[in-house]
Lab assay of single mutants.
Amino acid sequence: HNLTITQGKLFFHYNPKLCLSEIHKMEEVSGTKGRQERNDIALKTNGDQASCENELLKFSYIRTSFDKILLRWEPYWPPDFRDLLGFMLFYKEAPYQNVTEFDGQDACGSNSWTVVDIDPPLRSNDPKSQNHPGWLMRGLKPWTQYAIFVKTLVTFSDERRTYGAKSDIIYVQTDATNPSVPLDPISVSNSSSQIILKWKPPSDPNGNITHYLVFWERQAEDSELFELDYCLKGLKLPSRTWSPPFESEDSQKHNQSEYEDSAGECCSCPKTDSQILKELEESSFRKTFEDYLHNVVFVPRKTSSGTGAEDPRPSRKRRSLGDVGNVTVAVPTVAAFPNTSSTSVPTSPEEHRPFEKVVNKESLVISGLRHFTGYRIELQACNQDTPEERCSVAAYVSARTMPEAKADDIVGPVTHEIFENNVVHLMWQEPKEPNGLIVLYEVSYRRYGDEELHLCVSRKHFALERGCRLRGLSPGNYSVRIRATSLAGNGSWTEPTYFYVTDYLDVPSNIA
């Protein structure tokens, strides 16, 4: 807008934040220059609390790290170098490059900038070799853009010569660093050979998330399962459950009422301010606690030095998902009996873990797994792929695949051998790939016309006998059925096997 004052003059007093240069501009645009008398524009009460600059400061050096910015700028000295009290560095987070010096300023003089007072450097006698002032900004957020400017702080001049310097606002972004852990990993099994893994992005990506790394490792069953005799009275049979499938998407929606109208769909109840505040506090606490764990609990591995020492970490090797089922080394339970199943799973520490690289999504279907087997899954978020990966501390989750139908069934015939004193040795093959492992066998036998009897055969007993022995049988026709019990439950009964026990007292003698 054009402003013209045809008559009258300007009068400025007691404006401590208004620089004289701005008042002189007002004289020019209003056409009143030359009308004012000496005392109409006070030299001592206008701009006496402001830094009124008329020179431009330029930054000469900028260096960044993930949490620091090192700045240096060209030296500046007023005509009387004693008038320079120091520099004021202003900075704040700036997602967009549209910041002005006066953003967030209120009537009390406060604003949204963080201000650092910096002492002037030592003055050199040689004007050509003056030290460049600077400042190291610490405690910054990774991968965050900051708006920065600097200006001088000078003393009051009796001659009211307006001098000083100020830089333009520059924008500097800190470097990326390792992201925080992925949030809320959930693993479920939808079949006997697959596990579905879902997660949420890290709360602090500290860069642009480029991919996720998912490692999985087959877990050995508890050692007590191999040692305890679950045929003993009072000892509860062990059981394991597989990871249940995901709930429906509708039930997972946030901010939804727990109660549904019987007449149909209901609208979600909005969260109160107290609920939102509580969630923010919980989120802040979780982030602080995660940072504490990362800094205190997890110790970084030592990389190899120039002395030739090897990095103890196993090298990563990509495998196809079809090879995942046989990740671990199978060892027989008892070496003397080769027909026992290889369900003991000690994992070799030198073995390469299978892994998958996930790009542009937060889910993965891990296939080719062994049925009813526990897996430990390790999830890392990465925001750099080359020249070397920059990934987060791992988040861990466990899951067990679903049982395989008929995996616990005894394959092959049940054979028998009759000894003296009416002892019958029953023999059968253990299931080759049971659900988890076989903890015991149930032997059901009966003599024709009598009630059915049951015998429990422990895992250890089966390994020693290759089956079991029935003792003290009365003469007669017998039928026997056997079924295995694994961590997933009972298998199917075998087809009945028949044998006849004679009275050993009636056996004919070869003595003449």
Rank of each mutant, 00 (worst) to 15 (best):
A394Q: 10
S284C: 01
T485S: 10
R471D: 09
E221K: 14
E420G: 04
A309R: 12
K233R: 11
E281W: 02
V480G: 01
V296Y: 07
L213A: 14
E258L: 12
E452V: 07
W493E: 02
I366V: 12
F289I: 11
K271D: 04
P475M: 07
E389H: 14
G308L: 10
N490W: 15
A463C: 11
N435M: 00
A381R: 10
Y230K: 14
S283D: 14
N208M: 07
F372H: 10
Q219T: 10
K361H: 04
L321M: 11
C468K: 06
I209T: 14
A395S: 11
E420F: 07
V439I: 08
A381K: 15
L487W: 07
F246I: 08
P338C: 09
P475C: 06
F355L: 10
T343V: 09
S348W: 06
E404W: 04
Y375Q: 01
K317A: 11
K317F: 14
H425G: 07
S239A: 14
E442K: 10
P270I: 12
S274I: 02
R466M: 11
L453M: 08
E420R: 14
E420P: 14
M427V: 09
Y478K: 01
A220L: 11
S348T: 06
W242M: 04
C269W: 08
F246V: 06
E495M: 05
Y478R: 00
G306P: 13
F372W: 06
Y504C: 04
G467P: 01
W216S: 03
S474A: 10
T373D: 03
S509W: 07
V345M: 09
S492R: 10
S444R: 07
A463L: 12
D250N: 15
V297P: 07
L505H: 09
E389Y: 13
N360D: 03
T340G: 06
L379S: 01
E378R: 04
R400N: 06
P349S: 13
K317P: 07
R370E: 15
H454W: 04
G449D: 11
A335P: 13
N339Y: 11
N255L: 03
V414N: 01
Y500F: 04
E442P: 01
G234W: 07
R483G: 01
R353N: 13
L235S: 07
S305N: 12
V423L: 03
K460Y: 05
C269E: 15
A394E: 06
E389I: 08
V324F: 09
I438Y: 02
G306N: 12
V423I: 08
N477G: 08
E221V: 03
F462H: 11
G308P: 15
L470G: 00
A488N: 13
N360V: 11
T303F: 08
N206T: 06
V439D: 03
S320K: 12
D311C: 06
V327M: 05
G467A: 03
N477T: 03
A484T: 07
S367K: 10
G467N: 02
G322P: 13
C266I: 14
R481C: 04
F246R: 05
V327K: 15
L440C: 14
K432L: 12
Q256I: 14
V480I: 13
R353K: 09
I377W: 03
V480Q: 03
P354L: 11
Q219D: 10
T485W: 09
Q275Y: 08
E227Y: 06
L464R: 09
G476F: 00
F285T: 04
T502L: 13
E452S: 03
S315D: 08
E433W: 10
E452G: 06
T272Q: 05
C266R: 09
K253P: 07
P205A: 08
P413M: 14
P403I: 10
I377V: 07
L464V: 12
V296T: 10
Q256V: 12
Q384H: 08
N421Q: 10
N383R: 06
K460L: 08
I438C: 05
L369G: 02
V327Q: 14
C391E: 01
H425L: 11
P300K: 11
R481F: 03
L235E: 11
S342V: 15
T415A: 13
Q275K: 08
E217H: 14
R313N: 07
A463M: 11
A309I: 10
W493Y: 14
T340I: 12
M427A: 13
P413Q: 15
L470D: 01
G476S: 01
Y478W: 08
C269F: 09
F337Q: 10
L437M: 09
S268A: 15
R471L: 06
K287C: 09
E465W: 12
S344I: 04
T485L: 15
L455M: 15
W242G: 13
T288R: 07
I377Q: 02
P475Q: 10
G322T: 09
R218E: 10
E350L: 11
P434A: 05
L487F: 14
T343R: 06
S474M: 08
I377L: 13
I482S: 00
E282V: 08
S320W: 05
G436D: 10
E362I: 12
R390H: 03
W216L: 13
C269R: 11
Y292I: 05
T494D: 00
S315H: 11
Q380K: 11
N208S: 08
E221R: 03
I482F: 03
K460F: 07
Y375D: 00
Y259P: 08
R376P: 01
T502K: 07
E433Q: 07
S283Q: 08
N295G: 10
Q384S: 13
A488F: 07
V439L: 10
V334H: 09
R459C: 12
D222G: 09
D204S: 14
P475E: 06
N477R: 07
E465T: 11
T303L: 04
N360Q: 07
S479L: 02
N421P: 15
D385F: 11
V480C: 15
N208R: 06
N477F: 04
E221A: 01
Q380W: 07
W493C: 02
P245V: 07
S304N: 15
T485M: 10
E356Y: 10
Y259N: 09
V297D: 11
E465D: 06
D204W: 14
P270K: 08
